[in-house]
Design a protein around this nucleic acid. Structure first.
Lengths: 338, 338
DNA sequence: GAAGCTAGTTGAAACGTTTCGGCGATGTCA
DNA sequence: TGACATCGCCGAAACGTTTCAACTAGCTTC
């Protein structure tokens, strides 16, 4: 900018005025400045600008795993929405590790992001203090955090799971296994509650032996299904409360030579692009990823602009049960009902 | 930092020395500064730091579509690798649009990223001039750019496709369709060359009627397969040179009531997590995503550190054919060969 | 013809760091 | 005791912007 000013024979202030359109500059000066910018190859330095302005036009985004198809899509929607708004987004994957998350958020805050969208991980204490210590606005997605007064957009997990499990009981299943990830997360607690609610609704007893908790990974799903399917009185249906684990479940069925849906019905949380292409076509609970991403972006942009009401807003969206071919009445049931 | 200095009753310079460990500070001062940092809640401002230092410890990453499973995994690997190195990454999706890409790279450069990793899109002219005009290092992944002397890590696409199509000819297929994305991209040209080479190798004539070029989207794959499969002399196998399109292909087969692999064999580029879970289990060309991401990161970090030799380096990795259940000899062939 | 406006321009301060030269005080060596 | 390092600390300049008050011409208006 100094160089441009020299070449164009104007002051730095005038160049700035021209670049930002913040004040009138004469046609003559305009022309010289435009020329100078071209010859010098000037490009404005956003970090100096940010320092002066106190805004970086950059936001942070952290998710547990970008390879989880739910997060893949949410990240996709969010990055594109911010892109349209002229913001850059810094992406981090916590890999479900608390220490990663703390460090990443520290890094983001140090870089003076204008705001953050966080799909939280792990326990609350540390996160609460981080959020409390900064004035940068946070928006929580997917997972809430008790005691944190941040905007949030989440799913009505309880209802969604209850509907899916209710669908299974409606088909006649009475032994429905439940496979899920860690318990420390609001999402998982709500989903478990939905499972129990659906059982109760159908007059079925909750059997702890049919519940398997893992750590969100495919191999945990595999191990869980292996155990469940070799039980003396094995379940006739499995609901997986997250997507990576269902891959393991399906592989276990394959390795055990069990057919889905003939021998076991399977349904899971989170839709994915291949769900209706291959066999069995997977029955899933589809989250409104587009809406989640766009709402989260909108909430954060409003906070950044300062136009939002001060009390935290919480959006709860509804999931949708995508009924496909992976669930069927348990064998023997049709006869029984006839 | 000014506040910290005041509370600790030392100069700003001393606080800086303490924070960065760049000079000795007495135990007494250390203690006061530590206390002051806590009471003030000080966090260093990375943008001021970047301005002074001329380095942001931030890199840019642009890919066409993060939902394409190949890019999902590469992005995952790259973000984690940079995270470990203490860098933040700004992610952009070009959505295969040239204008997006230009604008995003401009934004990134303006933000003074220390370097960029780019999975390029579209034609070369504009991109060449952008790369030429900046001194920030670029690393190209997946797609090359003629005339740009940047480091790159790519796949040996020609060999990979030749191997896959060779596998199909080996099974006895003589009419093998080829479905792919746009032609302006090095990757696609190489893959097409691999297809032709494999045909030639098997003594088969190239038939333009069996080639369908679309725009990387599922619906293009669908349309392509619909046309191909209603041809009077329809192909017995389809190779899709990219992943999103194969979803469309499979849906078309489903809608036409064609069984894979009994009626048609299908193979495609890029492996995906569900490939060996459902039926048919997909035969794919698997790219070494882990290696691609890590190598690209390493190349860029070396450039940033200035330790790299000055001439551009090009890494070409090999793909791996994952043979699964989606390909079989064409019907009638077994008899003929017996 | 004086007063007042307006459009265009400018110098300088500020944003929060890092860094360098310098300056006392203390210790060491001859 | 004097010369000389060494240590801990500090003041101030610099990084590249934005912004504000101030200034100059040139016009308009009475």
């Amino acid at each position: 900018m100094l160089d441009v000013a020299r070449v164009a024979q104007v002051s730095i202030a005038t160049v700035s005025a021209f670049v930002n359109g913040s004040a009138n500059v004469s046609p003559a000066a305009t022309q010289r400045i435009e020329g100078a910018i071209r010859t010098v190859g000037y490009q404005r330095n956003a970090v100096a600008r940010s320092l002066k302005l106190g805004r970086t036009h950059t936001v942070g985004l952290t998710v547990p795993h970008i390879t989880n198809p739910f997060f893949t899509e949410v990240v996709s929607v969010i990055t594109q929405a911010f892109d349209r708004a002229g913001y850059a987004v810094m992406l981090f994957c916590t890999d479900e590790h608390l220490s990663n998350q703390d460090e990443q958020i520290r890094l983001l805050l140090e870089r003076m992001v204008d705001g953050l969208i966080v799909a939280r991980v792990g326990e609350d204490e540390r996160f609460r203090s981080i959020v409390g210590a900064t004035k940068a606005p946070f928006v929580l997605i997917d997972r809430l955090c008790e005691g944190v007064d941040a905007d949030a957009v989440v799913l009505d997990n309880r209802t969604a799971v209850a509907e899916a499990v209710g669908y299974l009981t409606g088909l006649g299943h009475r032994r429905i296994a439940y496979v899920a990830g860690g318990t420390g997360i609001s999402t998982m607690q709500e989903r478990a509650a939905g499972y129990r609610a659906a059982l109760e609704e159908a007059g079925l007893a909750f059997d702890p032996a049919l519940v398997r908790l893992g750590d969100f990974h495919e191999m945990d799903g595999y191990a869980a299904a292996m155990q469940l399917m070799t039980l003396p009185d094995r379940p006739t249906a499995v609901f997986s409360a997250n997507n990576p684990m269902v891959v393991g479940v399906m592989k276990a069925l394959r390795d055990l030579g069990l057919n889905c849906p003939k021998d076991v019905s399977v349904a899971c949380f989170d839709d994915f692009p291949f769900a209706d292409v291959f066999h069995p076509q997977m029955t899933t609970v589809r989250q409104p990823v587009q809406a989640i991403g766009e709402q989260a972006t909108a909430l954060l942009l409003e906070r950044i602009a300062g136009t939002a009401a001060s009390e935290p807003r919480r959006l709860t969206l509804r999931g949708r049960l995508m009924i496909r071919g992976s669930c069927a009445p348990p064998s023997g049931w049709a006869a029984q009902s006839a």
